[in-house]
Design a protein around this nucleic acid. Sequence first.
DNA 1: TTGAAAGCGGTACCAA
DNA 2: TTGGTACCGCTTTCAA
Lengths: 334, 334
Amino acid sequence: MSKASIKDIALLLGVSKTTVSWVLSGQSQHRKISDETRDRVLEAAKSLHFEPNYFAKGLYSGRSQTIGLLVPDVENPFFARMARIIESEAEKQQYSVMYCSSEEDSVKEDRLIRMLYSKKVDGMIIAPTNHAEETLEHLHRNNVPFILVDRDLERISAPFVGTDNLSGTRELIAHMLSKGCRKIGVICSVPDISSVRLRLEGYRASLKMAGIEPNEQLIVDVGYGDSACIRQGVDTLLSRGVDAIFFTANSIAIPGLKRLKDLKINIPGQVSVGSFDDMDLMSLHEPAITAVEQPVDDIARMAVELLIRRINAKGETHASEKVMLPAKLHTRDS
Amino acid sequence: MSKASIKDIALLLGVSKTTVSWVLSGQSQHRKISDETRDRVLEAAKSLHFEPNYFAKGLYSGRSQTIGLLVPDVENPFFARMARIIESEAEKQQYSVMYCSSEEDSVKEDRLIRMLYSKKVDGMIIAPTNHAEETLEHLHRNNVPFILVDRDLERISAPFVGTDNLSGTRELIAHMLSKGCRKIGVICSVPDISSVRLRLEGYRASLKMAGIEPNEQLIVDVGYGDSACIRQGVDTLLSRGVDAIFFTANSIAIPGLKRLKDLKINIPGQVSVGSFDDMDLMSLHEPAITAVEQPVDDIARMAVELLIRRINAKGETHASEKVMLPAKLHTRDS
DNA sequence: TTGAAAGCGGTACCAA
DNA sequence: TTGGTACCGCTTTCAA
């Protein structure tokens, strides 16, 4: 029951490995193999259940037909969906996906990237921490193509695909302002990554546009998003008299909404709420929560497309495109 | 910048590949390599940034240090969490994870399992469709260890780890009965998989225990869970006068709850609600929804443990343990 | 039209 | 204590 190899087929038929290899890799035409030989080989391959050995092929070709996916947390609905789409897009092109979660920890991130690298993935899709430069440089030097998603690293020139966080946020804040909110608080985490930074920037810009001077006291940074800190953050903002709260991500919104529920705060009576990342929970919430939906499917599709293009273009230098896809505001009852 | 190989090091130092290989694989002691040689090799390896070639190693050893994960949908919060825990458990043991989503489609499942197989994963963790026997037999014949999770396949003797669906459901239904519900409807999908089958069995058993004859008219099967069908299912049950609805999975509960919200049904005034699979949404819902939480972390951990044990015990025959972990009922306001 | 042989990068047996 | 060499399975160049 041990695997049939090319050699086995060659021995069986009394032809050479070369011939078998040529037939099996569809080069019968080009290499002028006789139809008869070709058919005998194909038949033997079928009856012996021949399957090319992945390692041998990889050893020679250097290709694994596998891509690596590194995100902060595959369990987060945003990244879980991204993983799902990436998987199906990759499969269409005969690629498999290996995934890892960095937990926003750059040390772990470094370790995981090296692991993916050592497993010879043909390329990677990475939502990096803000300290990934060195590791990514290493990839670059070793000609491993990669695409950044969700957060960009301005200091390195790498292709990026993500949401237009600035416009998305501005639209959301503008909506809140139009509903009469004047003292909008924010809860954010990991503000050093580009996406969050831009969401904060969008927030400030919108206020200024409306003639309101942003008050830094109303921006609460909860570090890596521990839920106790988030609940605390809600309390802080409430004590500072906000009339609205902007959650900068789903991971913040969930504990945040829980806290508001526990405190029996009336939404939008006492405070309005707006959130980045739309999810079932937002529309099912009572009242339904206004949220900005990221174009995650498009991000995933484009990331795979760009990555595979780069994999196939190994060697050639590309301009490092930076793609920003528009977000979509869902105004609801909050 | 191309990778340094063992040969490069050997050439550089004027020693043989054998020596280098032995030093690098930590056999200096055993193979009695002189300390001096060892140090020279180690130093050269470090300065040339030597890293063993994954394919070459795999070609010889047959091992990939990778496991395959096949679930119906990695985006589903239950499986997303499972994926997350499996990843971290696997990493502790130096394994990477490749994932695939079968979409409950046995044809796709077969294709994906074969793909994982061809990529030489050392083992697989699979939440199978009810038609996976043949493919799994193929794995078995080829000595690829695998663990079934979430749903068991009684017809084949394979290790399984999942939730005790029967008890979990009985507890939930008993709770609903104790609150006075008498006409409990059910919406389920893919009832041919063991987990759902057991949930339905638990439902019927509980009713009988309470002296109520189960009415098959109150069990709506929505096939593969298209959300239009689920909404329709809710309508059907309501028209049949149920005083409670049991959703057999989170994927059913979400569209189901949406429909109830759209219809402005008062929960639990008009109908009570209970669901399998706890998630943030359940406790944040107004009113909070009573739900059965599956021990997904334990399932994932145990699956990895059993799998790796089997990988390492290749050849030995094991009893095929079937592990059922207890579910936890969260009674809430619905 | 087909085959022999070298090589991809390690590992391990058998000698020395 | 160390080295030569065959082999894992596939691809491809060069010869016939």
